[in-house]
Design a protein around this nucleic acid. Sequence first.
RNA 1: GCGGGAAUAGCUUAAUUGGUAUAGCGUCAGCCUUCCAAGCUGAAGAUCGCGGGUUCGAAUCCCGUUUCCCGCUCCA
Length: 514
Amino acid sequence: MSHINENIQLEFIISHAKAYGFIFPSSEIYNGLSAVYDYGQYGVLLKNNIKNFWWKSMVQLRKDIIGIDSAIMMDTNIWKASGHINAFNDLMIENLNTKSKHKIDILIEEYIENKIQKEINNAKIILGNSFNEEYFIKNNTNIIALNLKKKKIFEQMFKLLKSNNIAEIKSLLIELEIINNNWGNIQKCNLMFKTKLGYTDDKQIDIYLRPETAQGIFSNFSNVQKTGRMKIPFGIAQIGKAFRNEIIARQFIFRMKEFEQMEMQFFIAPHEDKKWFSYWKNIRLKWYLSLGLDKYYFKFKNHTKLAHYANAATDIEYKFPFGFKELEGIHSRTDFDLRNHQKFSKKKLQYYDPYKKCCYIPYVIETSAGLDRIFLSIFSYSLKKELLPNGNSRIVLKLPPTIAPIKAAIFPLVNKDGLPEIAINIFNKLKLYYNIIYEEKESIGKRYRRQDAIGTPFCITVDYESLSDNNVTIRFRDSMLSKRVSIKNLKKFLENHINMKILLKKIINIYNKN
RNA sequence: GCGGGAAUAGCUUAAUUGGUAUAGCGUCAGCCUUCCAAGCUGAAGAUCGCGGGUUCGAAUCCCGUUUCCCGCUCCA
């Protein structure tokens, strides 16, 4: 057996996902909604299995992590505290030469950063080995002045924004030589989806659909810590939908406007962030590999430009058909979120540490995975075109058996002579434990191939010998070989091959070794 | 957002450069079938992405638009 093409194209993945009921474009009968997709009958099963595996790994197996499910709608102040709403976040401007669009606040940050970096580079050359960067940044008068200047610029901009003087902001940027006349007008855009709360017009207030699930965890920190009697270090996990008005959505379900995150915020003592950051980096990569995926398809990518909340960040990337792209982010968020929520809500979000005998705002290490992206990675990894010894080819979805949507299919070899009755009997017994299907239509070969295409790891066939010896044939999806097993041992056979506890045991091993 | 390409049945696709649409696979019903998309009979399924224009006549030409793919770009 050989692979016809190692690099399966995205278009083929999309058409297979549609043809076999995994993923459909949203609102397709109305021409489709851009960057929104629906999960079909097999897609939802696969997705739920991935979710389930994550939840059991992160919550069920760990006494130091508990799970919650917070609401999608939250008080707007949460997004002020988190930094998602700030006055300049939504302002964009286009460089007419390069046709690229830029966020105003980032342009200013970069402008100041570049100047600071120049000072640092100069000092390095002059001072040589005796140069201490941390000390220099804190005490150099030029750098202090630059930081002051930045503060002033933002203050000025804020004033202009308040008086709705957006055109003046552009003049200010030109004056500072951040941009020149070859830039377009400043435009407002919304990266968060807005909706209205209140059912009469006069009582309506704007709220946002959450752009990340994390804030539901931070805002519940105190409740969960106290009622769960959790001691630091501990984590809060959550799976849920998030919404972003992506400027450009591309690559199938990789970047969607409505997507699902699986994330865990791990609360730790201040300055233990380095240790826990590398711990979770390590654990999370091994979680992917435990599914049996080749490590050649994964890599870490360290962020050089950090988000406003992080002091260290790494992505776990997967080699998609369109290149290495982020699956999961591991971020060291410091106490940024809790500190800001304490400030905005005026509620204490501190933790009394009984061992250290002091109060502090915990630091946070975040692991934030994109469920749809993991789905796509596993789906594209598993989809193969194979050339068979007889010259034919087959399309087979070699999913890890434990997360396959259908675990086994039961067939009578022929549709007569009492064979269907035995097969239905087996089906009725096994369906209590696993998601399986019964099928009697078409030839046996066609039924095997249909199961190959949706990733069913085992097909169980009742034949004439079964009538006398009570054995059936189990046909393996990946090797296409078969094996005789007695009917009464089927449940045990499946348990040994497709029960999720096989994976969970691996995860326990990983936890014990780290 | 820019540039390039595409859109015909569930999937893959044909239509001699203007004459209301082809097939394979799949699906459904029946027959037949002793292990890898077998065979026979029959059936359903396409206002050719959508809107407009040119024309006696448009899947085909023109304009607009939507969606998708590729490359840039962007991405707390």
